[in-house]
């Protein structure tokens, strides 16, 4: 395999974090923990963006940095709406267990 460059190290860390978040989102029963898994995946993508910005040819253009900042803002909005939905569903079903949320009608 040979020498791992700095960029490859960050990309591998991001891939590992993405896989952990994906595994959590696919296997946990609690809806809040599924949202946590999605947040981890978004963070892994942000790490990729920042790493490519740092080791890319034109860091002064700020492209990757801006992508990461906007991605953080969108992720914050997603977390607020997602958790609001979970709380609302909990009021009707008294559960956050995704295996028991099997009907669309409230």
């Amino acid at each position: 395999m040979g020498h791992v460059t700095a960029l490859q190290g960050y990309l591998l860390l991001a891939a590992l974090l993405f896989a952990i978040g994906l595994a959590g989102a696919l296997t946990r029963r609690n809806a809040i923990l599924v949202l946590i898994g999605i947040e981890l995946m978004l963070n892994a993508a942000n790490l990729n963006l920042i790493a490519f910005w740092r080791y890319g040819p034109h860091p002064e253009a700020l492209t990757g940095m801006m992508f990461a900042i906007f991605s953080i803002a969108v992720a914050a909005a997603e977390a607020a709406v997602g958790l609001g939905l979970v709380i609302h569903i909990y009021r009707f079903t008294q559960t956050t267990d995704l295996d028991q949320m099997n009907r669309m009608k409230g």
């Binding site: 896989a19 994906l22 595994a23 696919l26 296997t27 946990r28 029963r29 609690n30 923990l33 295996d99």
Partner: peptide
């Protein structure tokens, strides 16, 4: 804490990684 299909989820995540 894990759903019934945890093995499939774990396999998908491992393959993605």
């Amino acid at each position: 804490v894990f759903s019934k299909t945890w093995l499939a989820g774990l396999a998908i995540a491992a393959m993605v990684f």
